[in-house]
Design a protein around this nucleic acid. Sequence first.
DNA 1: TAGATTGTTAATCGATTAACAATC
DNA 2: TAGATTGTTAATCGATTAACAATC
Lengths: 213, 213
Amino acid sequence: METKEISQAVIGRLPRYLRYLGDLKDDGVERVSSQELSELMNVTASQIRQDFNNFGGFGQQGYGYNVEYLYEEISKILGLDHRHNFIIIGAGNLGRALGNYLNFERRGFIFKGMFDKNPKLVGDDVRGVKVMSIDGLEEFLQENDIDIAVLTIPKTSAVDIVNVLVDNGIRAIWNFAHVDLNVPEGILVENVHLSDSLMKLSYNINCKEQRSE
Amino acid sequence: METKEISQAVIGRLPRYLRYLGDLKDDGVERVSSQELSELMNVTASQIRQDFNNFGGFGQQGYGYNVEYLYEEISKILGLDHRHNFIIIGAGNLGRALGNYLNFERRGFIFKGMFDKNPKLVGDDVRGVKVMSIDGLEEFLQENDIDIAVLTIPKTSAVDIVNVLVDNGIRAIWNFAHVDLNVPEGILVENVHLSDSLMKLSYNINCKEQRSE
DNA sequence: TAGATTGTTAATCGATTAACAATC
DNA sequence: TAGATTGTTAATCGATTAACAATC
C-alpha cells in the first residue's frame, strides 16, 4: 500500500464504511456519491472523500463511487481478503461468544483453537473446536500458524500468558482483559475494554441527568 | 458539574486513569505527580494535567495529586457513585458473559433482568437472574426502574427492540449489535462493534506485513 | 525560603470541513 | 457540451504539547 502512515482515526472509520457499503450492495445499489453516503452515515461528504483519498481515490468525477468496487477495495485495505488464524485463550462465556460468532469466519478469521486452565472445561466443544489445556498452548503455537490470540481471561492470567504468546511468535493480540498489556515493539495489541465503554455511557447518563436538574 | 461541554476524548481517557489510580491505591501509594503517572501510563504529563483541569483541578502545587482523592473524584465524574440498573436483551454467550461479570456490580451497575425470544432459554438462571421471554419486556420496563438496556442480539432484532425500549422510557443503550441504532434525540447509545475492532487489528497486521516485504 | 509541581496560557500539531478546479 | 461529482488544496477547528507563572 502507501508509504505514508494513515491515521488510526481513518482506519477506525473504514469498517463502518464497509458495513454501509455492504448494505447498499445487498440492496442492489450500484453507485453512490459522497453526498448520498454522507447523509446515510451522518458524516460530512468531505470527510468521506478525504478518507478514501488516503488510499488513492476510488471514485470518478461526475459519477461517484461504484459500490461493489469500493466495497472490495476497502475489504482489501482491511486485510479481509487474507486468512487470519486465531485462537481464543479463556473458554468462559465471552470466549465462547467470540468462538461462535460466524461472521468472523466470513471475514477470513479462522477459529483454530481454544484454551483454558480449568480442567473441567477441557474437551468441551465450541463450534467444532475442542477446548485444550493451557499447558498445551506453547506446543500448539509451535505446530500451528496462528496470527491472532484473543484474550478472554482475567487480567492477572493475561499478563503471564502474554509472555508465552510473544515467545512463541504471536504477532497480534485482541485483548479483552482489563489491563494494558506490556508487549515488545512490533507486537500489535487491540484492546476491547468493556468496562471502559460502560463507564463512558455512565458518564453521559449522569451528565445528562445533572443538566436537566 | 461544569457548564462547558467536556470532549469525549477526555471522557474516554478517564476510565484508564481510574484503573491506574486503583492500582496505585492498592499498592498503598498515597500521592502521585502528573510526571510519574505519565511515565506509568505512557502519555504526556501535560495531557494528564489538562484532562484533570477540565473538572476544576484536583492537585496541589509542589505536592501532586492525592491518589485516594483523585480516584474518588474521577469515580464521581464517571457516575460510579450512582446505581444504574440494567437489563440484557439476548441470552446468548455474550449476554451471559456480561451478566456474569461481577465487576460491573462493584461499579454500581446492577443486573436486573435478562430477556430472550428463544423459549428454550426462558427460565435459565444467569447469576441469580432468570431469563424472561421477550414478550414480557414492555411490562417489565413499566414496572421496574431500568436505566440501561444492553443489546446482545442480532442486528435485525435489535432494530425492532429499540422501539420497544424507547417507547418505555429507556434512556441509555449499550449496543453490541452490529448496526447503528436509530434513536430519538436524548437517548444515549454506546456502541461496541466487536468486528470493527477486529478489522482494525487486521488492517494493522496486514499493513505491517506489507511494510516488511 | 527553595524546590517541586500544579494550573493555565500560548504554541503546535493533526484532523475535519469548506471550497473549487479538474475531469468524467 | 453541460452537469455532476470527485480529488485536492486551503481554511478552520479542536486536541495535544510546551512553557511558565502561580503557589503549595
